[in-house]
Design a protein around this nucleic acid. Sequence first.
RNA 1: GGAGGGGUGGCUGAGCGGUUGAAAGCGGCGGUCUUGAAAACCGUUGUGGGGGUGACUCCACCCAGGGUUCGAAUCCCUGCCCCUCCGCCA
Length: 452
Amino acid sequence: MNELLSGPVILKLIMPASIISATLRFKGDHMLDARFVRENIDVLKSALGKRGATADLSGFAALEEDRLRLLKEAEELRNKRNVVSEEIGKLKRQGQSADQLVSDMKTVADRIKEIDETLRGIEEQTSNFLLNIPNIPHGSVPEGKDENDNTETRRWGTPREFDFTALNHWDIAEALDIIDFERGAKITGARFAVMKGMGARLERALMNFMLDLNTSKGFKEIFPPILVNRESMTGTGQLPKFAEELFRTVDPEFYLIPTAEVPVTNIHRNEILGEDQLPVYYTAYTPCFRREAGSHGKDVRGLIRQHQFNKVELVKFVKPEDSYNELESLTAAAEDILQKLGLPYRTVLLCTGDMGFSSAKTYDIEVWLPGQQRYREISSCSNFEDFQARRANIRFKREGKKGTEFVHTLNGSGLAIGRTLVAILENYQQKDGTVVIPEVLRSYMGAELIKN
RNA sequence: GGAGGGGUGGCUGAGCGGUUGAAAGCGGCGGUCUUGAAAACCGUUGUGGGGGUGACUCCACCCAGGGUUCGAAUCCCUGCCCCUCCGCCA
């Protein structure tokens, strides 16, 4: 851990995405960040105050100053070395002695090596600092502490009136013998379940229905690796800060993805896209794996919170000026799935305190669950602006313009399959314990009713 | 798992210690020619960063990371990826 971040320093703070740098791998990318910090130190301080958070910003700035000074010195020395070395080459070809110059350059080379080593240490610290700073919220995001300060944007559908007591999905599922929590726990452990018969079929039907609907809207279907390396996890922001949320393999070290966002966004890591390629729309089904550390006692029963679940994801790479419109249409695409399934939901705009680390603006879509008599998150649609693009170095080039820019990345669940299944069981349950299959799924299910 | 061979600019492909950021060809862009197009010819054509009002100039990058050297695309080490053959295997 780096010194700036250790001790009592609180890391939650707001800082413009433009200073979030990619990692050390991309040499030279820190200059822009240093300049930004120098010129915006007051802006940053007030942003921190507003959040009631602190970080050693001045320590960071001082470190940056050192870094720039050393970098300049090293560059000058390199220039000298290049010029003199060429001279040495000339002399040698003419058969003349160059011993004095050679020994001079030996000291220069030593000094360069010395500076480089110091620089490496400093860069490790600054990079670590930057990687642990969250994205800055968009201006349209309400300020707030937690989920209680979120604002409801809209509602769709009317929760059904039951003339009997609506059951929880686990009661429905166990009666129908389509989900087996006991066996899931035996095979693996808590928060794992076995889907059986029409339950397994429904899981598969939802996956296909969602992918078919998404691809019909121009999202290209992707089936990515579900084990990824450290660089990919860093690119989308899961690492280094949220390692405790991830499952990982030991030898070789890979990470199990917590969402398809990771492999799909990283498809274009370290790439420069052509302007004519944008926007890029992807949709992907994958299993997702989450440790759910710190959620002991929450949703212990049922399918709501599992260590492994299935999800269909929507991912976009867009031009900066389009990203907020794209967020609206992305959210609409996710909502459309619920509408076609006839599931009542509401859409919520997350406040500053409830948003994810990498996001600049997030809509959560919450589906109505009669068993719990409340709305539960079933999709989360976010605009990351250039936060992920900086970390993952995803750029594009405008036609006829010099240089490159970072793309904006977005993603959203379209949708979480397990929770959709829960919503169907609870919303479509009948007094006799059977469950009506929503119209749009019947061709996938080969049935109209789930019964025992 | 065993034995070899490779990774160079948008692509093909030279270079294997010193005017090589990189030959040549193809492609792209601009121009000449043409009624227009093709062909031909001429020119141009990577990314990031620093400095300068500017002409311009400096640094880094030939898979990645270390090392040797006054000097590395070129030599050494490690990793990653690709190809061929053998073995094994869903």
